[in-house]
Write a protein that binds this DNA or RNA. Structure first.
Lengths: 333, 333
DNA sequence: CTGAAAGCGCTTACAG
DNA sequence: CTGAAAGCGCTTACAG
């Protein structure tokens, strides 16, 4: 485990100055082809590896992007994080990732750590609570940062927001259920009062208002477990409910599981629609209808957006909503 | 977006030299309490943030750990990666994460990038193929690196390996199924010839050999989709099979879904056991028995192991197998 | 307990 | 096209 070779070592073995080596490293056109080849060979010979941190001290752009996620174990966020990371990697950037588990204190800590590590930009799907502790340092550090999927800090000028168009999603879902004859449609899951819950519910509320139908709202955690419990509650307390839209697919999959447990079928007699369209929807039985957020595509576009901000200084619009559509499968057909 | 303040700025406003500021930063006992307080206050006043990269140039330990995962979308790996990252974060380390999607070329590229970024150590759940392209650079860079969950490079001296004790897991599962009266037990999923598949199958093969029962092996991708297809194949071609152990929980959950689709019950008439015990097992219907690998605990222990190697120079044993046990639920009760 | 100086591995003008 | 020198923001001996 010797000292790592530096450009000086490369320069010596190639018989040039270290400036020349540096220019080769940057693919500068100023270096004669012959010299370039010699230098490259020298690098291979002595096993040189580039030290980006040293380079950053003089120039800037560390080639490191921070990605902060409120709930990485949820497949929706996993899919998002993975697609962002891989798109960044394609563009030559490394990703520093942290899961905050919905804890704003953890979030503030990891964001600070990322700033110290010199991330050039940051993408955050934030936890709710104490915005200042995480967004304050970001403002002071002056690094480009986007909030995605959830709008927690109102300063969308400083922290542009992007998310799938949830309201349209739930309107599509509600419209579909009404069109197939459902008359008593519940909305299941989502913590009351939170922005995401409000948004994911708004199209549903609007569609029901148009149809002069009373909503049935059963708020709760966005988990399989809650969905499963709710299946029981529906059977006991809401026999009239003939369809449901869920806050997300996990809840819907839980409902599916709960119905199976109760021996009640999901389909024409009880139509169910999830939200997000994670991969599992197509594999469930019955296959689960869902509002497709195209989260992989969303992740890719976020990667492109943050890099365009970083590299070309093109700040994103304060708010961007991306298209969603409805995928109808057996659970609501 | 001004220039970020440096220790020189802090020194000026606190009226001390920059060495003193540096000592304060390192919580050195050499600095008088009064001075320390002044310096701290100056930092707050001017919004100083520590530049770890600059610090690393002189000392070492960048406080950055690389984490490379072959399939981050698989909840088993998500759970692992998340628990490693959070444990590292607790110890003050940031995590650079990359998903390789089972592509050894991508893997070689991201590992090189991580080395360039100066990660102090690396944990890798490797993709199969072209070990040299990823492990060669790691050797040359001389940074501590562990392979986990899969042993791809045979040099376990350089790259210590750790994983749950898969053979014992499948032996437990097979023993349980035999004890409940199953006589024709299939092993479903796992790519033929791969080390993980062999290990996860070995206890099953041993238990069946002891009982003088012929194995039924149905290799395939480790996905829900494959599990679902296999349910159909079992019904058509293997009517005698009365139990199955799956390569992982995703396959088992797919089988569950496929059986539901076919209207065949899972339970006493057909016993099913998964592998890994991801969270979803308890929420499925029927609840899925599984070999518990305690992946969250495993992740934590890996974080501790790599840090102890890095900080105290205690290299891990070449091979470590962690305990597994069997969780029996409705699917095999 | 605190300060002045050198150095970590690069890049960046500036000469030549 | 290539080299010598300064500097990025820290830490680390070394004096005092």
């Amino acid at each position: 485990m010797n000292r790592r070779p530096t450009i000086i070592d490369v320069a010596h073995t190639a018989g040039v100055s270290k400036s020349t080596v540096s220019l080769v490293l940057q693919n500068s056109g100023l270096v004669k082809e012959e010299t370039r080849v010699q230098v490259k060979q020298a690098m291979l010979d002595i096993g040189y590896v580039y030290n980006r941190n040293a380079a950053n001290m003089r120039s800037s752009n560390a080639g490191l992007i921070g990605l902060v996620i409120n709930d990485l174990r949820n497949p929706f966020f996993t899919e998002f994080a993975t697609s962002v990371q891989m798109a960044l990697s394609d563009r030559g950037y490394a990703t520093v990732l942290a899961n905050t588990d919905e804890d704003p204190a953890v979030q503030a800590q990891v964001v600070t750590a990322m700033i110290e590590h010199g991330v050039s930009a940051l993408v955050i799907s934030p936890a709710y609570g104490d915005e200042e502790a995480t967004f304050g340092p970001l403002i002071r550090a002056g690094i480009p940062a986007m909030q995605v999927l959830r709008k927690v800090d109102a300063r969308t000028g400083d922290f542009p927001f992007a998310a799938p168009d949830y309201p349209t999603g739930s309107r599509l879902a509600a419209g579909h259920l009404l069109a197939t004859g459902a008359r008593r449609i519940a909305f299941i899951g989502g913590v009351a009062g939170r922005a995401v819950a409000r948004e994911r519910m708004s199209g549903y509320l609007a569609a029901l208002a148009d149809a002069r139908i009373e909503p049935v709202i059963i708020p709760g955690r966005a988990s399989r477990e809650f969905g499963r419990e709710t299946a029981r509650i529906l059977a006991q307390n809401h026999p009239d409910v003939d369809a449901a839209i869920c806050f997300n697919d996990l809840v819907a999959l839980g409902v599916l599981s709960g119905f199976a447990e109760l021996g009640r079928p999901v389909g024409p007699s009880f139509r169910l629609v999830g939200f997000d369209d994670i991969e599992e929807c197509a594999q469930a039985y019955p296959a689960l209808s869902s509002v497709r957020c195209n989260i992989a595509g969303f992740g890719k576009s976020i990667a492109a957006t943050i890099l365009s901000w970083l590299e070309d200084g093109r700040a994103p619009a304060p708010e961007t909503l991306t298209d969603v559509d409805l995928v109808i499968r057996a659970s609501s057909a």
